[in-house]
Every structure is written in C-alpha cells, then in structure tokens.
Nucleic acid binder design. Structure first.
Lengths: 267, 267
DNA sequence: TTGCTCCTCACGTCACGTGAGGTGGC
DNA sequence: TTGCTCCTCACGTCACGTGAGGTGGC
C-alpha cells in the first residue's frame, strides 16, 4: 500500500487532487486510517487512476469520468460518447478559430494604420490610382452623416468588401447643409440592387494627402491639397474622394488618431 | 436615461450581467436612485457597453477589459496585447486539436474492433499476407510477458508504428516456462538499434483465426486452427504469429472483448 | 388588487490551488 | 527536538445564472 504522497508520485496526480477525487468518490483509497484520517492506496487502484488521467487528457469532465468508470466496462460502449464529445470539442475549436480570425483582422488593420500614421506626415503625394468596383448610395445632407448609408452598404455588400469606405463629394465648394454626396465601399463583385448602385470608379493620376485627426478640422488638409494643386497648376476633377483609412474602432473612438485620405483625381 | 431592463434590451447584455458589471466597476450606471437602488443608464454609456461586448467576443477576460477601457484610449496601443492574446488563443486551439486527434484515433480503433468483432465468429480464414517491416526483440520467458519488450519497442519505434503488435512463437509445442518468443511491431521505416532488430517478415499464404476472449483461454483457438490445418493437410511454419488486434484499452481492460488473431504461414 | 420591473442577498458552477492551523511518526 | 508527511477546514477562481424574498410604481 502507498501513502497519498507515494501514490501521487506514482500516478502523477497531485495530493490535493487525490483528496478531491476521494471527496467526490471518483478515486477512493482502499483504506483510511481511522484516527489520523491517513489515506492508503493499494497498487491495484493505479489502473483506475491511469484511466482517470487518460480521460482527463481528453477533457472529459470529472463527473462524466465517474459515470464512465462506474457504469461501463468496455471502450466499445463509449463509442457514441466519444463521438459526441468529439463534436463538442470540435465546436469549441470552431469558436476559438472565429476569435483568432477577428484578432488577426484587428491586428492587421492596426499594423497598417500604424505604419501609415508613421510614414506620411501631412505630405502631398502624387500617385496612380486603380479603377475600383464600388457599391454606393448617393444622397444629400451634411458632411459626416454618412453613417446610415454606410451601414446599408455593409449589410448588403459587406461580405464582398475589399477596401476602406469613402465619400465622394460632388460640390465644387464647401456646403454645410445640403451637400451632394456618394458614399461608397470597394467590393470584389456584385450588381446593383434597389437603392444601391454598383459601378466602376475610374482610376488614373491623382494627388493625395493623408490627414490625421478629427473630422471637424479636416478643412486644413483640403487647404493644403488645393494649394498644392494651384501652385503646380494641376486641374482636379469633381467628385473628390475622402477615404476613411482609420475611423472609430470597434473598441475606442479616438478622433486624434483618425486617418483620412483626401484624393483628387487629375484631369 | 434607461432603466436597467431597457438598457439590457438595447445592448443585449442581460440584467444580471449589468448588475455584475456594476459591482465590478466595469460598467457603472450614470445614476443610482438612492432609496430604491434602481440603476439608470444614459445613452452615452452605450458605446462603452458595446466595447465591452466586442472585447468579450474576443474572449478577453473581464478584468483585462476593465484595464483596457480605463487605461487606453486607442486601439493601436492594444496591438501588443492583442498579439499576445492571439497566441494564447492559438495555443488553446492547439491543445484542443490534440484532444480531437486522440479522440479520432480512439474512435477509429474502436470502430474497427467492433466490425471485426461482429464479422468473424471463430471462423478460420485462408488469406494472403503481405510482407511486413517489423522492429522486434527476441527473448525467452513466459507467454504473456511481452509487456517490457513492447514498451521498449514503442518507445524506440512508436512514431513509425503502422499496425498492431504481435508475438512470434518459435517453439513447436506449447512451453509454459521458457518459450522462445519474438515480440514485434510493424513499422513504416527504421533500422536496427542495439537490442532491437529491424527486419522483413515475409508474407504469403496463411490461415488465420480471430479469437475473442482472455489470453488464458486462447488454447482452444490454437486447437481449432491446428485441427483445420491437419484436416486439410496444410503444413504451417514456425514461428506462428499471435497478433493483438484489441488488447487492454487506455481506459478499460476487459479480457472478454480482447481480439487476438492467430496466424499460421503455410509452406 | 394584480402584474411588472426592479432590488439585494446567498448559493452554485468546475477542478482543484493556496494557505492556515494542527497532528503523527521517525 | 526538528523535519517531513499527512490531516481538515475555509476561501478563491470566472462570469455570471438561479432562485428566494421583498419593494415600488402604474
């Protein structure tokens, strides 16, 4: 016979766990010395201990382990149990995979935003823009009221989205109240549905500026970009684009760190 | 302002959870009516509630959520946290995958044993056996003492194992005490090491019988098989093989259900 | 008065780990 | 006597859910 400490070393189960299993009736010592309460285990019970360990490795809950060891005596009878248990574990894996997928997305997004935030410091850039397929809604109203349009676009075409959302401004000048705006998201594929147009947004040469900060102060950035164009006698087209590279996040909205690209296509 | 029930509907957080978050200081109502203890939430706090929900979806523990919401104000600062959290989730996935792998193995094994147990009822079968590569240890002793040899074989070649273990008996007659035995496991590849021989076990025509039950009574099965050979004037070779199709399992050992194949190669 | 919403305890979950405080045998 | 092993509580973990028992406003 072994004392609890010896039995613990033999089986690899902690003393605390052995006492707990005794309490639960899962692994009862062969003898308990009355006055002292010392537990003594015989070598024959080692098999049961090993069985418990094996089932624990398969993440079977203790209660089920108890039932299994007491009601069955052959592994074949456990087939249906194992199959069921396996599907359950598989669904846990699926859940976790969903979580890693979300985390990956957030991580990638933040990484991008960070490099963008570090590289460009308010410098105007000339670049070539590819033609994009977009899903869009055209509406009139105030700048910054694109929320409803955006959520409509994402609920209809979100699964095909392949880039950052943007607003296209059709007015020549700043309009506070009744601006002519097209809110759009780039998509991989799709066709128009009632209320939403799918179309190509032509590419070409453009000047662009990344602005960091709250939307209220974006006027400065427009100033910088129009000045740049005027100085170099570049003609730009309407609509101009305002691309939301980084807006309010899932968790925080911190306008100081918003990144917005202003893009003027050149004629 | 909303009552707790209204706020619960808006956010999708249960009333119980809202009270719990209040206790923990994670989501404190804007006002608590003194005499009644009624909690009242303002619409502005909905954002915080949503942030909590998002972080919970990523399986971030509540305490960490509290720290995040109170100490950070931009998602970029969370990058390292998210990365670390991601690796942790990934390791959980790895653990669970290990479990499903073990379960799959057990399930497959038991399924095989079950069909085997149902199809063959003590019927002698003539069959062709393929040549096998085996790792083996030859020793002398009692039938049934192959445990040590087996564990040595598995610890050296277990990762290349590709079939059930077997004993080869070199004695012409039953020997109780000092039998000449070679214990072997089929392997995919490998070369001899000190104490363990790797060699080919030649295939060919054979007669075989599957026996179900404890090892002590396997003598009957030998009788059946030798009788079959004698009646048909078939000559069989030494060593004969005893293949352990199903022995004691990880959890149970139930000798009544052991499946052992006796295999006599024909000359 | 009846229903509904809200409140505060207290307890349970799961498998132990972590002390605290004490005993028994070499 | 000192160390070591063993014992029994009691409490903590994690994020609430489940009652029980009671109150407040329409």
């Amino acid at each position: 016979v072994y004392s609890i400490g010896e039995f613990s070393k033999i089986t690899g189960i902690t003393v605390k766990a052995l006492r707990f299993y005794h309490d639960k009736g899962l692994l009862v010592p062969d003898r308990v010395h009355e006055p002292s309460g010392y537990r003594y285990y015989s070598p024959t019970i080692v098999t049961r201990a090993r069985a418990i360990l094996h089932l624990k490795e398969m993440m079977v809950p203790l209660e089920a382990i108890g039932e299994i060891l007491d009601s069955y005596d052959d592994e074949a009878d456990l087939l249906s149990f194992f199959i069921q248990h396996r599907t359950q574990i598989a669904s846990q894996i699926a859940t976790l995979r969903g979580v890693t997928a979300s985390l990956d997305q957030i991580i990638a997004q933040e990484r991008k935003a960070q490099t963008m935030s570090n590289c460009n410091d308010f410098e105007v850039e000339e670049k070539d823009v590819d033609t994009l397929l977009i899903a869009s809604i055209r509406w009139r109203g105030k700048y910054g009221d694109c929320g409803k349009a955006l959520s409509a676009l994402y609920s209809a075409f979100g699964r095909y989205a392949c880039g950052k959302p943007m607003d296209l401004y059709f007015d020549e000048d700043h309009k506070d109240d009744d601006a002519d705006i097209e809110t759009a998201i780039p998509i991989r594929k799709g066709t128009s549905v009632p209320g939403i147009t799918v179309r190509e947004l032509p590419g070409g040469k453009a000047i662009s500026l990344i602005y960091k900060g709250p939307y209220e102060l974006i006027g400065q950035a427009y100033g910088t970009l129009t000045l740049y164009a005027r100085e170099r006698q570049l003609n730009y087209l309407v609509p101009v684009r305002q691309i939301y590279r980084k807006g309010p996040g899932l968790i925080f909205k911190n306008p100081k760190n918003y990144l917005t690209e202003l893009l003027f296509m050149l004629s």
